[in-house]
Every structure is written in C-alpha cells, then in structure tokens.
Design a protein around this nucleic acid. Structure first.
Length: 466
RNA sequence: GUCCCCAUCGUCUAGCCUGGCCUAGGACACCGGCCUUUCACGCCGGCGACAGGGGUUCGAAUCCCCUUGGGGACGCCA
C-alpha cells in the first residue's frame, strides 16, 4: 500500500478528443508528473451503441501528439463487464439496489409530471418496494439513501454539499445488461486505486451520487478536483459552432503540440505573469491548488499567437520535418531537407501556422506567375536596363556566398545611382508573384541561382515587350 | 423549473486565503510611433476591468449578506 498519487484520464470513445478533454487530461497528467505519481488511461466504452474502436485509437493518437504519455492502460471498460455485474449483484444482495420495470415512456411521464410541479425531474422510486427480479426490459437501480446530506471537499471548488433528496435512484444496469457510467467509474477508480479524480466541471453533480455508491460498496472515496469548463466566445459550452474543437483538427491546421499544451494549461491555471512554459517548467510548477474556480473562454487569437511564438522559436530542422506533411498535402514536389529548413527560416516571422508557411511561401514550392496587374504595375520599361544588369551581375556571381550576391546589387545600384527601394518591389514580384514576402536576399539565397535568374529574366522579357 | 457552481480590462489572468505596498499588474486583440527593400518580427506608447447594493472595518478588489448576470447538471450518455 502506498500513498503515491494516481490520476487518470477516462474519455469515452464516442467522439474525438476535444479541447476540453485535452485540458483535463493535461491537468491530470501534469499533476501525476508533478507529484511523481502515476497517470492511467482508461477508455469508458460502456455505451456500446456510440463507442467505436476507431475513435478510441484517434483519442490515443491525440494524447500521444500532445505528449501526454500514460503509465498504465489503456484499459477498456468493455473488458470488465463481469466485474461490474458482480458489484451490481452485491448491491442487490445488500438491498441497496433493485429491479425496475418502468418503461422509457413511464419515466418520461414521471419527469414531465415532476417538472410541471416545479420539482426536480427525478425518478420517483416506484419500483423500490415491488421486490421485482430480473426480466426482459428491466434495469437495476441504485436505492439511493433518502434524507440527509452528501458532501465532499473538492480540491478546486472547495466544500460542496447536496441534499440526498435531490438525488436520483439512478440506473446501474441497463436492460441490455450493460452497466452504466456512474457505477463503472466508481468501481474502476476504486479498483485502480485512483487517489485524485481530476475531471470536468460537468461532473460535479454526479459526484454525490458516486460517493453514495462508494459508501454502499464500502470503498474508499478518492479526492475530487473538478476543473472549470472551457466556453466558446458566447460563453456557452464550447462546440463546433465556435470553430474546430478537435485536438487533431488543430494539428491538421498547422498548430504545434507545445503551443496547444501551453495555451490549454493557461486556461484556469496560471503562475504569476508567466505566459510561456516549457514542459519541464509545467511539471515543476503545476499544482491543482493553483487552478481557478471559474470557467474560461477559448480565445483562438491568443492560441494563434502562442503557436506563432513556437513557430518563431522552435528548432528549424524539426519544423522543416513537420512542414513536409503539409507540402505533400498540397501535392507539391517535396524539396530536400536543407531547402525546407531554409524556407522555414525565411518565413517563420510572418507565418503563424505550418499551413500558413505553405500559403505564404507558395513560390518556394512551385513555379509562379505574377497577376497581370502586378506585372503591369511593376515590370515597367524604364527598369529594363537596370534589370538587365541585375541579371548579368547575378549570373556571374557565386550563390554560395551571400556576400557576393549582395555586392552584385550594390554595384547595380551604384551604376545607376538609385536606391534599393526603386527595384525592390519589382524584383519581389518577379520572384514571388506577390508584393509581400520575406526579405529579398533570403528569398534569393533559398531559391538559388537557377530559379532566381529564370524568374528575373521572365520579368525582363515582359519589360522589353511592353 | 429544481439543484450545484461561478463573477477583476473584449478575452486569458495577477492580486483575494494571511484587508492598507492597487491612482489594480501582465498577456492576447486593437490603436499609434520607431525600425525598414514589402510584409512581418522587434522595441516604445495608448485604449481598457474590481457586476450592483448593503454591511464589517480607521481602511475592502480582498471578509459577510442580498440582488443581478453567467455556466453546469437534472438520460437505460459519459
């Protein structure tokens, strides 16, 4: 027996790992790492209708992408059905559970009746005294304690107390023989010796019900920590309406996992004025005690800013490797690693995501032609001689030496006694097809002699023809 | 509707527990300026909040109560 911290993340594979779930997982993981405890992953797939193996795997992938590694699991609740049933039987034998024959329609009526009378729409317990046994269409319900108070000390919310009369005789075993969430979560957390149940705010109301089950079963009640929700910009529960909510959707949009971790951790948690954290710092600094009690609004702009921060400061070789996927997705020919890294270095200050790099740096990956209006505006005949000389000078220069390339321009500028400004935009348009781009010399060095000269000559041809 | 929870700039938050150092600090966004071959980056500056009302106190963003506002839960989902 040890008192080591054991936390868990228990998603249900009825959807992808979303922002909210990821943050909960992150907090659980951080707390385990911070305390030197264990982090367990458990898949809650007792809803056979809606759960799927594919979704389970997607969740695992998302966890891995975020770097949230687990020490035990993944365990699947569907592998433990007999275990849960044995507990149901125990409750039945103890008289703390009973068979119920009420149909879904009966239940609906009971609820509507209660609500219309201004009461909480809970099950009225009409089958409690019937002494029913198993039968088709029947479920097992928990005989919840009546009267009194159930309370607990939440690590985040503080003291929470609920009147037992508010609580339902909830279903433990469905008519199809599958156990339900409130039962399985209790049994597994107990069997897995979870010390700290860190989960979403939306489970606060379930907690007293679960505590009653722990008590009925004579199991130790863990410590609870309910983390506040993440809301959308209109302060309602975050959903697709607010934009992408799936973790992996952000990966596909060119976000970095460290940016997501850093962004999410700062929702309802902070450490003074610090905004940027390395994983090591987080493990060192994170504590549930510092998690706030109020909900946070997901702010895409700040997330983008953080992503840009990591794009700007990340290792360029790694970024180049990540960029490769995005190049392939566009069906562009994949350049070599050195070229890709140069692109990253050229564009990183002005692109906030990996996907941005592809858009903004399109001219690095494919042949481009400036729109007609830009050609007309910038490729003017008066620039003919100047451009001619730029091409000639560059032609005779060694491109492995940036110094020489810059010198070539200096000599052209001196010959015509003009400012660089005079030819910068025309050259930019010739090289990139746009008026906005990275620095000219960076582009030229990355593109290389052949491409640079080819594109400048094409502009020169235009100047001559006009 | 009933129950539970929450409440500092538009947003994320520091400060609140252990009242005075708060004419409330930082960050994102926004607006100016500087830098400059474009755009960015960077730097400098600006805008901007203690929900309201009562208490307690010499003194309240900080403690208490009420109101209001918001969120969540009320399922044979998790």
């Amino acid at each position: 027996m040890s008192t080591d911290v054991r936390t868990r993340f228990a998603p249900s594979p009825t959807g992808y790992l979303h922002i909210g779930g990821a943050r909960t997982a992150l907090f659980s993981w951080l707390y385990a790492r911070h305390t030197g405890g264990k982090f367990i992953l458990r898949i809650e797939d007792t809803d056979a209708q809606r759960s799927s193996q594919e979704l389970s795997e997607e969740i695992l992938k998302a966890m891995q992408w975020l770097g949230l590694d687990w020490d035990e699991g993944p365990f699947y609740q569907s592998d433990n059905i007999e275990l849960y049933k044995s507990y149901v039987n125990k409750l039945l034998e103890q008289g703390q559970a009973y068979w119920c024959e009420c149909s879904p329609e009966d239940l609906k009526n009971i609820r509507e009746q209660a609500q219309s009378e201004g009461r909480k729409p809970k099950y009225d317990g009409s089958c409690r005294k019937k002494g029913l046994g198993p039968g088709p269409g029947r479920v097992v319900r928990f005989a919840a304690p009546q009267g009194g108070l159930t309370s607990f000390e939440d690590l985040i919310k503080g003291h929470i107390a609920v009147d037992n009369d508010e609580l339902d005789d909830l279903v433990l075993l469905r008519s199809d023989g599958m156990p339900t969430y409130n039962l399985t979560v209790v049994i597994d957390d107990a069997e897995m010796n979870i010390t700290h149940v860190i989960r979403g705010d939306d489970h606060v109301n379930n907690t007293p019900k679960q505590i009653q089950i722990y008590q009925a079963l004579g199991l130790d009640v863990p410590i609870f920590a309910h983390v506040p929700m993440i809301l959308g910009s209109d302060k309602t529960r975050l959903s697709k309406r607010h934009g992408a909510t799936s973790v992996m959707a952000y990966k596909d949009m060119g976000y970095l996992p460290e940016a997501m971790v850093n962004y999410l951790v700062r929702l309802s948690w902070s450490h003074g004025d610090q905004e940027i954290f390395t994983p090591e710092e987080l493990i060192d600094l994170f504590d549930i005690k510092d998690v706030g009690r109020s909900a946070a609004v997901f702010n895409p702009e700040k997330f983008l800013w953080l992503n840009h921060h990591y794009i700007k400061n990340g290792d360029s070789k790694r970024l180049a490797a990540l960029l490769k996927d995005f190049v392939e997705k566009q069906d562009y020919p994949v350049p070599d690693d050195v070229y890709l890294e140069q692109v990253v270095i050229d564009v990183r200050e002005r692109t906030k995501t990996l996907a941005d790099m592809i858009d903004f740096g399109e001219f690095y990956f494919r042949e481009i032609e400036a729109p007609a209006e830009l050609q007309l505006k910038f490729f003017t005949p008066e620039l003919k001689e100047i451009m001619q000389m730029v091409v000639e000078k560059l032609f005779s220069v060694d491109f492995s030496d940036k110094e020489q390339v810059e010198q070539a321009f200096v000599s052209v500028l001196e010959s015509f006694d003009i400012k660089f400004k005079k030819i910068a935009q025309p050259i930019r348009v010739a090289l990139t097809g746009k008026t906005v781009s990275p620095g000219l010399f960076e582009i030229i060095m990355t593109l290389g002699k052949d491409t640079t000269l080819r594109r400048l000559r094409r502009a020169l041809e235009y100047m001559k023809e006009v």
